[in-house]
């Protein structure tokens, strides 16, 4: 059964010159124990999608289901329970940790708030267990964030998110601030934890090689809209949407013999403020016609392969 399901989720922001459509009518499911990768360029609403699902901000419209329960609107008590089940790992391990809390305190704080443990000793023992789990040496218990390197800080961020044994974790670009050699350590850790604890991830990133490595399914977003979603292997083997094709072809390859056939896009991301109806990618799309300016539907083109493009049959 799907652990997380969103239906027609919308998140709009009021800005001085109109309404910013950060997430616009997005629907998908994440099965238990799997990883959903969400990719797209900066400003496409992928982080907003993550933070809206875990109620760091309230949705404007649509529905969020967690384990079959409707969690779109929660009161204070319900939100408190929901937060034990859903957590987030933030992008920047430099600014997401409280500089005045040492490592032990950072990890112990959620344990204390939860009141699951009776004595201080139990809390401490649990914090030790978590530090062990994410690979932070015990001697760093009293260290402050500024004393740690990026990789270790990110491990602390992961430990804090794992403290209450959540079921679902939003990973918001957890490795993009790290060097490749450290990035690989953290990715391996996340995958090991998933195996051990049966976690479900939503992995938000702009790095397509990372997302391919870690995800079972992938959503591609463009300016708040979900343009394509399917199993990871399928997406990389046979992308259907013109934007996905351009995005995949833009990744620089490390293969010396492999000449990438690049689909060059014209222009840049347009504004998500007061967007016109229809496909938002149309302005940069090589194949856009009048029909593309009409509202679009996400359609199942092949089994498990959903695309939002009215010309998809003609193009492929």
């Amino acid at each position: 059964m799907a652990l997380i399901e969103v239906q027609h989720l919308k998140k709009y922001f009021d800005v001085p010159n109109g309404t910013l459509h950060a997430v616009d009518d997005v629907s998908f499911k994440i099965e238990k124990g799997t990883t959903m990768g969400v990719v797209g360029e900066s400003g496409c609403g992928k982080s907003t999608l993550g933070t809206t699902i875990i109620h760091l901000q309230e949705s404007t419209g649509g529905k969020i289901l967690f384990d079959g329960q409707d969690v779109t609107h929660l009161d204070k008590k319900q939100l408190y329970d929901y937060r034990e089940n859903v957590q987030i790992i933030f992008q920047d391990p430099y600014s997401s940790l409280n500089p005045r809390y040492n490592i032990a305190k950072t990890i112990m704080e959620p344990l204390q708030i939860s009141k699951r443990f009776k004595s201080k000793e139990e809390v401490r023992a649990e914090a030790d267990r978590i530090m062990d789990l994410v690979g932070i040496e015990k001697r760093l218990r009293g260290a402050y964030p500024h004393e740690l390197d990026g990789g270790r800080r990110q491990r602390v961020g992961i430990g804090r998110a794992l403290a209450l044994n959540p079921k679902f974790i939003v990973c918001d670009e957890p490795v993009s601030a790290l060097d490749v050699s450290i990035q690989a350590q953290v990715l391996n850790l996340l995958m090991d934890l998933q195996d051990k604890q049966g976690l479900t991830y939503m992995f938000v990133t702009h790095d397509l090689s990372v997302v391919r490595h870690i995800s079972d399914n992938i959503c591609v977003m463009y300016l708040g809209q979900l343009v394509e979603t399917c199993p990871s292997k399928k997406l990389f083997a046979k992308p259907l949407h013109p934007y996905t094709k351009a995005l995949l072809s833009a990744i620089p390859s490390t293969d010396v013999d492999h000449k990438m056939q690049r689909v060059q896009l014209k222009g840049e991301l347009t504004s998500p403020i007061n967007p016109k109806p229809g496909c938002r990618f149309a302005a940069r799309c090589l194949y856009a016609t009048e029909a593309c300016r009409q509202p679009q539907q996400l359609r199942e083109i092949e089994k498990d392969h959903f695309v939002q493009c009215c010309r998809i049959e003609e193009l492929n």
């Binding site: 690989a184 490390t254 492999h258």
Partner: peptide, 15 residues
């Protein structure tokens, strides 16, 4: 340590 775009490897080998 680089995730390979053309191969499906299970684990990365970090330094």
């Amino acid at each position: 340590a680089l995730p390979n775009m053309n191969l499906d490897s299970e684990r990365l080998s970090p330094i």
